[in-house]
Design a protein around this nucleic acid. Structure first.
Lengths: 251, 251
DNA sequence: CGCTTGGTTGACCATGTTCAATGTTAGTGG
DNA sequence: CCACTAACATTGAACATGGTCAACCAAGCG
């Protein structure tokens, strides 16, 4: 199992991954027992995917629905010249192909940023659960939060200087990964600087220099896959980060 | 009536504005007669609003729901330094405050780009119509298309040079306004170069120079409020514009 | 050890910004 | 009809941010 790029496990013993999806939905709308069961009884496959592997191809009509269980994935756009723009980052519990559930075909592709564990659910089965209006509502709300994140990201890409783009993205990921815990904390991210650059619309070299600026300013420390935030309040303020747009329940 | 900035008309004789909303929904999901009637029997107010006026304030909990009937409006983000980033442009038939219908509070503000005619519908009444699953589905799909547009916009802002940003935006607006008609056509836009700059994340001066490049390249002509496209295919190709992300019915 | 991947550096260059002035046009009141 | 005004478009010069290229370093792994 160690060095294959993709390995599939069918029907793993534990349901914990579907619970992740359920929790995600319940943060967006209350579900009644029947709706809950409809989610938990979905059948699925688990797959381990290596970094920078495609999860969802552009223009394909999806037959199976992806739930990210572990790792980070990203929605990628490309220009004809070959440069990549990451337009959304997915964290565990997210559904990278949610749009494809309701729109005719995918227009963007999704690929992994790190090693990932993903759940594959049948699109047909999932569509069945939409007859519970609460599930539909939860998914709709989830989509709207994605939209809100996209808007905030546009502000970042369009109007902030490179160091703040990086800082803002770090803040967003820290919150979404549930890593924020007091003023000092650290978390494993596993993204390369190239991936940060692609997300922020800047070059690798500049991403590298921006990280250095953040480090020299004493806002973060980073060694390898780990990022340590030394003063959360200062980092957030300095990066113009206000988590309201993430619509998280007040802890 | 001529020079007031805002003027309200209650219950105008014609329902044509609600029909606009209905058409918008029906492009996203088929509606049965009952659902159709639920939309058409919504009560509403019409308001005329001057350019650069606020339609929706940040952090306010909306009591009324906005449908744009005429003109252009935009979702605006701001950085503390005061620069503005337009994150979405709304055309007639769009619902600038759709997120506010399902999420607790607005995080972005919306303002008009040109003189606008807007319909105000009660949020409570509109929420009533959501018991028709088809309406919920149509609104959800509409939200997903907004998301798709946001993603494409991120690619544009993050990775394209200024002239292509402008060209791409022109293409998107031409399609969304239904102005595209053969290879040569013209349409009234009414946006200032400052607004284009704010949408593309560039400075006014650079927006101006980009327009000049487009004109000198023979891709567009523009005089005042009007834009004339002289060779649609060439403009679209050159701007890397592919309308798939707009999910429009194949004409 | 040598290979590969990702991080770091410096020099040079390009794209885009800022500031400040000047045109241009449409609307306004005399 | 004509100044007068306001808003927008256009221009040039100086400058800044960020990109490109190419080299080098460091860690992990066979």
């Amino acid at each position: 199992m160690l060095h294959t790029d993709r390995s599939v496990t069918t029907r793993p013993s534990s349901l914990s991954s579907l619970r992740l999806l359920l929790e995600q939905l319940e943060t967006r709308a209350p579900l009644q027992e029947e709706a809950r069961q409809a989610i938990l009884s979905l059948s699925f496959e688990v797959e381990e995917v290596g970094r920078e592997h495609s999860l969802l191809h552009q223009s394909e009509v999806p037959q199976r629905f992806c739930v990210l269980a572990d790792g980070l994935a990203a929605r990628c756009g490309r220009t004809p010249e070959g440069s990549r723009q990451i337009t959304a980052i997915y964290v565990p519990g997210d559904m990278p192909g949610l749009s494809g559930l309701m729109l005719p075909n995918a227009v963007f592709s999704v690929c992994t940023l790190t090693r990932c564990k993903v759940l594959w659910v049948s699109v047909r089965d999932l569509r069945q659960t939409l007859k519970h209006p609460q599930i539909m509502e939860a998914l709709w709300r989830h989509s709207l939060v994605q939209l809100s994140m996209a808007w905030e990201w546009e502000v970042s890409i369009g109007r902030r200087p490179a160091e703040k783009k990086i800082g803002h993205l770090l803040c967003e990921l820290a919150v979404r990964l549930g890593a924020v815990n007091g003023s000092k904390f650290s978390f494993q991210l596993g993204m390369t600087q190239q991936q940060f650059a692609d997300a922020c619309g800047i070059s690798v070299v500049h991403a590298n220099r921006s990280f250095q600026t953040l480090r020299h300013a004493g806002l973060i420390e980073s060694h390898g896959d780990w990022v340590a935030v030394t003063d959360w309040e200062r980092l957030a303020t300095w990066s113009e980060f206000d988590q309201a747009y993430l619509y998280r329940a007040p802890a």
